[in-house]
């Protein structure tokens, strides 16, 4: 997605190198809005309100009053849920009357497309980590993302992904002994 100006580091000795990076798939300026900030603000306020009610109820059930030893476990969080609920209610009201937020764009269609172009692969990566292990998933994510989203040459994408994943494996699994989720491939290789 970001094309590169081809310039070598060798020109560094001239103490001045020009760096130009283009972004041909940049979101267009005039793309239509998907949602206004007001709509999102209202939805978020409602969600927070629901969360506050749920958590408040749960804490009430746990016990939000006083007993002989002091405040019960639910006491502190119960009153926090009340504060959260109150603030979200206020936010709901404020969002309804705000004229500024009504005209403000939360995200345009072109922007949303780009955001999803990162979010969806990330989601798939998490899924793959669960079943294939982190290292295989990370190889797939980097190679796939560079090739499909970034339109970078296949060999560059695969090589970068392999080198990065290998470095991560050596750093974490071998040198620092930090264990990551592993899948069938690692099992087959006996790690």
């Amino acid at each position: 997605m970001v094309a590169l100006a081809t310039q070598t580091i060798s020109s560094m000795s001239n103490t001045d190198i020009e760096i130009v990076v283009d972004d041909p798939t940049a979101p267009e300026e005039n793309s239509p809005a998907v949602a206004s900030t007001r709509v999102v603000d209202i939805v978020v306020s409602l969600l927070l309100l629901a969360l506050a009610v749920t958590l408040g109820w749960d804490n009430w059930r746990t016990g939000a009053s006083w007993d002989s030893t002091g405040p019960q476990p639910g006491y502190f969080p119960f009153y926090l849920s009340v504060i959260l609920g109150g603030a979200s209610l206020y936010g709901l009201g404020a969002a309804f009357v705000s004229r500024r937020e009504a005209t403000e764009t939360f995200v345009t269609r072109a922007q949303l497309r780009r955001v999803l172009a990162v979010f969806v692969p990330t989601l798939l990566f998490c899924l793959a980590t669960q079943y294939l292990g982190l290292y295989v998933a990370s190889f797939l994510l980097i190679a796939g993302f560079m090739r499909l989203v970034g339109k970078i040459a296949l060999w560059k994408s695969v090589l970068t992904a392999f080198v990065f994943t290998a470095v991560m494996f050596v750093t974490f699994d071998i040198v620092f002994d930090v264990i990551m989720p592993k899948g069938p491939l690692e099992a087959a290789l006996g790690r």
Binding site: V2, V118, I142, V149
Partner: peptide, 13 residues
């Protein structure tokens, strides 16, 4: 100069 398409997935990992 490193393309963001290469940096982004590495950050995610």
């Amino acid at each position: 100069r490193v393309p963001f398409a290469a940096v982004a997935p590495m950050i995610v990992v």
